[in-house]
């Protein structure tokens, strides 16, 4: 109701040509649209048009904090430029000293050259002479996150963790989107199947440091927990497959264990029986070697004796463990020899 009256009121004012800038407007012939409510504080454009000296105005517009920031960033940029230039010249000098090609002088070469030219007996890395790229040496400062008027670029700037909260915002957005997709499916009388759900077995959530790297800002433990909880909820959605690209940004693939496992191939002895010999098996202070032979009769030899060389039953069980998979112990022979041992007797 009040809004209605207000708009009517402004329309009347327009009709009567009475407003805050009545006279100026008359001069400049500005036509005011009836659907725009003029505000006294949004006058940047008009003021720029009106003013004879635009520089004066823009100077006054920048507040002190902004000025200080601009000054500091200018100084920082100058300083960094100087440092980088010095570094590049120094690098070329060093390359010449070492008699190498200055254009293809890498950081590893620099390190090598420095350790050669300035040998140091000190242990602390910080105490040793070094030559590092200034971009790595000095911490990088963030670019301004606000425009000249002091207005932040990011819509969640005042949350202090804009990128983190943006991700949370996206989670809610995708949840709503998934809800909509599910509703559409149900309207078509299609039940969401297991194919619509994201398969999470082969991946796991990234850790807090990785998330911080992605976001580019530090977050608290509590916030990280909240993030994981929210993402778990997104994953549990019956049609979570549709948000796969978003979810997988924050998951890392798990390695398939067998990928790195190299199974040794059996050798064949003079009787054409396959065998595998493993040397220097370590167990505490003892070192031994084990030979497992195929096509056998289940004979076990430990230091020239049979399994009774172990008094302890647990040790006997252990020596049988390697063979007892798939009832293989009936077909295998195994012999193990203890090479050296300090005090304990251990075979396999």
């Amino acid at each position: 109701m009040t809004v209605l009256i207000f708009t009517r009121f402004t329309k009347m004012r327009n009709l009567m040509n009475i407003d805050n800038f009545g006279t100026v407007r008359g001069l400049l012939n500005i036509i005011q649209r009836s659907d725009v409510i003029s505000k006294s504080y949004s006058t940047d454009a008009i003021q720029q048009i009106i003013s004879d000296k635009p520089d004066k105005f823009s100077e006054r517009k920048i507040n002190k904090a902004m000025k200080v920031y601009l000054e500091r960033s200018r100084e920082y940029k100058q300083f960094m430029e100087k440092q980088i230039a010095e570094y590049n010249i120094g690098k070329r000098h060093l390359a010449k000293i070492m008699g190498e090609d200055p254009d293809n002088f890498t950081e590893a070469d620099i390190d090598r050259a420095i350790t050669y030219l300035f040998p140091s007996g000190l242990y602390d890395k910080q105490a040793k002479p070094m030559m590092i790229d200034p971009t790595k040496m000095y911490e990088t400062r963030k670019e301004a996150e606000f425009d000249e008027a002091g207005r932040p670029h990011h819509f969640l700037f005042y949350t202090l963790n804009p990128n983190y909260y943006e991700v949370l915002h996206e989670i809610v957005g995708s949840l709503n989107r998934l809800d909509k997709i599910e509703d559409q499916m149900l309207a078509k009388k299609i039940q969401p199947s297991s194919q619509d759900k994201l398969d999470i077995v082969e991946s796991q959530w990234i850790g807090k440091p990785e998330l911080e790297k992605i976001l580019g800002e530090e977050i608290k433990d509590k916030d990280f927990e909240y993030f994981i909880k929210s993402m778990d909820r997104l994953i549990q959605h019956p049609v979570s497959k549709h948000a796969e690209s978003f979810i997988m940004k924050f998951r890392k693939k798990l390695l398939f264990i067998n990928q790195h496992l190299v199974v040794p191939k059996p050798e064949y002895d003079s009787d054409n029986r396959p065998f595998i010999l493993v040397e220097k098996c370590a167990r505490k202070n003892a070192r031994g070697q084990v030979k497992v032979i195929g096509n056998g009769s289940g004979k076990i030899t430990i230091n020239g004796q049979d399994i009774t060389s172990f008094n302890d039953i647990q040790c006997r069980e252990q020596s049988l463990r390697s063979q007892s998979r798939d009832n293989a112990y009936k077909k295998l022979d195994s012999s193990s020899v203890l090479i050296e041992s300090s005090d304990r007797t251990t075979g396999s």
Partner: peptide, 9 residues
């Protein structure tokens, strides 16, 4: 089984 094959033991 899938889970088992992807986690270290």
């Amino acid at each position: 089984l899938k889970q088992f094959s992807h986690s270290p033991v």
